[in-house]
Design a protein around this nucleic acid. Structure first.
Lengths: 408, 408
DNA sequence: AACGTTTGGCAAAGAGGAACACAAACTCTG
DNA sequence: CAGAGTTTGTGTTCCTCTTTGCCAAACGTT
């Protein structure tokens, strides 16, 4: 069946939508821009930009301020800036040991963020949803319901994007739980609720607001207990035919490696996951974040066993990255989660291993950097996912409002 | 710097181009279509389609024929069919042991194909170019020079797409040879000469005309001596930041494996390349295509050593495919080259290994099939690469011609 | 033969950006 | 400090392309 998205024809209405989308996206992702910069960026004329900005301004999405003269000749172009109150999203994060909610305004400003620890016990979907709603209520009071664009949710599990069904989340003890639908009911809001995997969203966040901003070909590797990632190809996240792509933690890197939870063996995850790292160093595999921090400290202190262990981890990290670099030829590799934290002590070995094991052409321009968003990456990514609803078709959001205003 | 391609604004001219492109692409890839099917496919109105078809028809790109009544009520919609003589491309293939040239018409019809064997010796760029031109001359006599759209070239090596520089082609003994530029000079034609890697083009060909037609997420694995591939993500070939992506032959699958020509060790290529296959079976590693055919025959005859060897190969093939399936979640895996030929004897084991080693969600809907284009895959892909020049912006090709006609 | 259905043909309308002329706001120069 | 040069906002008109609406043509059904 053909859905409207499959229709390849362009109409004049499509043109307007696409141009509004380009401007809104530019402002959201890169911050305030002068009108003339928007002209240069889009290739449209000043007149056209003027009309589009006028529409966005009338809808309250953007404001214009006088731009200070910058020393160049000519009339200064006013600065168009995103209005955080003009559109907002609600973002959630469901982790094994904490829940969080955030209110984020257009332009990416985090208006408020609340995080609560929770026991590492398995809780039912209904209990989690109730906790999330309780977290969100005070945030929602700060926002005009009219401006709410969508709700984004990051969850540590495999998710069917279409309806927010969590197909499998071993650490939460969930299987086929309809998180998206339940949360939509419980919040009682009239906007889409979009659920996605936390690793995917961490990568999206780094691409939008972090270490990979403005880079279009990125491999993002993250992990705590499991190892996951997100791959940006030409500026778009790799999703695959059914949305389950980028499961890089289960690349087969070591045929003689140990058993993996996924049923295979020698997966990357079994070599570089948090437990593997701690085990190699002879530490408690359930040491978690503190265990890793202690290990890094031990490495920096020069403790031999820790050094040996971290070298092994770095080598396996480099081997896996070599595969990914050969496959994707990215411009940037971003290390998140546990790898962000161990980056200072593995960076050099990872780069050397990569140089030894990847093709010269593929690795020529690649850089390896730690993420910059830390713990809040996934929830920021959830907010960005929700903002896609606005960025993809701003007209759909602002036209109805304009009509309502005209009718009143 | 901003090039015109980076300009994100849409104009009415863009709309026309995009709509013409959609129709031309549909006809080229899927063959004749009735006007009403094009209406349904594009979402445009009958009037708009009429105007667009009219323009294409005036340019000689398409023709219309009366459509036979199909039993449904209503006036029959005429069939719009691509006119092979309306636009043509020249395609070349440079292999270690043969050269080929083909003339292909709009719609994908191969008008003529000539292939000549050549010694496995290293020849200079100039010699190869001269041979290619000699092959092409009789073909070019059959085509109106006005209708030539572009020239495509498939070559077994790493290629910089921008200018057709062959950066490295070990089997040809080439390094940084400007194949694209030289061929353009020697042919003395006024159209772009586009050079690409033969594995990339083999994948493109299967995606356009072969086993992967109309599938948008595909992993294509091919190889003779080396192992390469091409990955289609959302209908687009994966190219990476500098164009060197999809070097899947150099995935690290066995860190304790043997040395690879790339400098690393335990690459997929060292486990499943043609030489590895023959070596495992205790045969001459330089046995080439005949060696493989004999091995397959031995397997079918039940010869134990051959059976053992092929099982090992199938297992390693499955291990690498599991990694690719976990990363890309494709709808289809296509085996080309040597893997196309051994598919009958490895298929079952590959599928079992894949089932054991990939994530259930990622492999859920994937099928593994042999390619259908055989030896001619790469040259067909080269033709399709050249046709992109037409498909991307038909207006640029037909408007000048229309203007010239009006001026005369 | 009459009717419903689907489609092509054509003219008029509508939407949206481009082009152009002019005014405004800045820098630079003498 | 005045005037020239430059860049940009404003407003009007024009152009391109698609849509809308009406009619006729070509098919099947009753």
């Amino acid at each position: 069946m053909l859905t409207p998205r499959d229709l390849v024809g362009q109409r004049s209405e499509t043109v307007r939508r696409s141009n509004l989308s380009a401007i809104v996206r530019e402002l959201h992702l890169r911050g305030p821009r002068s009108r003339s910069e928007l002209v240069a960026r889009t290739g449209l004329t000043r007149s056209a930009i003027r009309g589009l900005i006028g529409e966005l301004s009338a809808a309250g999405l953007v404001g214009e301020t006088r731009n200070e003269p910058d020393g160049a000749p000519g009339r200064p172009s006013p600065l168009v800036h995103p209005n955080p109150g003009g559109a907002m999203v609600l973002a959630f994060e469901v982790k094994v040991d904490s829940l969080a909610a955030a209110l984020v305004g257009f332009g990416g400003r985090v208006q408020a963020l609340r995080r609560v620890d929770r026991p590492r016990a398995h809780l039912s979907l209904d209990e989690i949803v109730a906790d999330l709603v309780a977290l969100a209520v005070p945030l929602l009071r700060r926002a005009d319901p009219e401006t709410l664009v969508a709700v984004g949710v990051a969850v540590a599990g495999i998710v069917r994007r279409a309806d927010g069904l969590v197909r499998m989340a071993p650490n939460l003890g969930w299987r086929d739980e309809p998180l998206g639908l339940r949360l939509a009911e419980a919040l009682d809001v009239d906007v889409p609720v979009l659920v996605a995997n936390e690793a995917d969203l961490g990568g999206l966040a780094e691409h939008r607001r972090g270490a990979a901003a403005r880079v279009d070909d990125v491999v993002y590797v993250t992990g705590e207990v499991g190892v996951g990632g997100s791959i940006t190809v030409g500026g778009q996240a790799l999703v695959g035919s059914a949305g389950y792509a980028a499961e890089i933690g289960h690349m087969a890197v070591n045929p003689s490696g140990s058993r993996c939870g996924c049923g295979s063996s020698g997966c990357w995850e079994t070599e570089i996951g948090e437990r593997a790292i701690l085990l190699r160093a002879g530490r408690d595999p359930h040491g978690g974040r503190e265990g890793i921090d202690e290990l890094v400290a031990a490495v920096l202190a020069g403790e031999p066993a820790a050094l040996r262990a971290i070298e092994e981890v770095a080598t396996w990290l480099g081997i896996g990255l070599a595969t990914l670099v050969n496959i994707f030829n990215p411009a940037l590799v971003v290390l998140g989660g546990v790898f962000e934290r161990i980056h200072p002590v593995v960076g050099r070995t990872v780069e050397r291993t990569l140089a030894d094991r990847s093709l010269p052409a593929a690795r020529e321009l690649v850089r390896i950097v730690p993420g910059t968003l830390g713990e809040n990456g996934p929830i920021i990514g959830a907010a960005e996912l929700a903002f896609e609803e606005l960025l993809h078709d701003p007209a759909a959001r602002i036209r109805p409002r304009a009509l309502a205003a005209a009718g009143a």
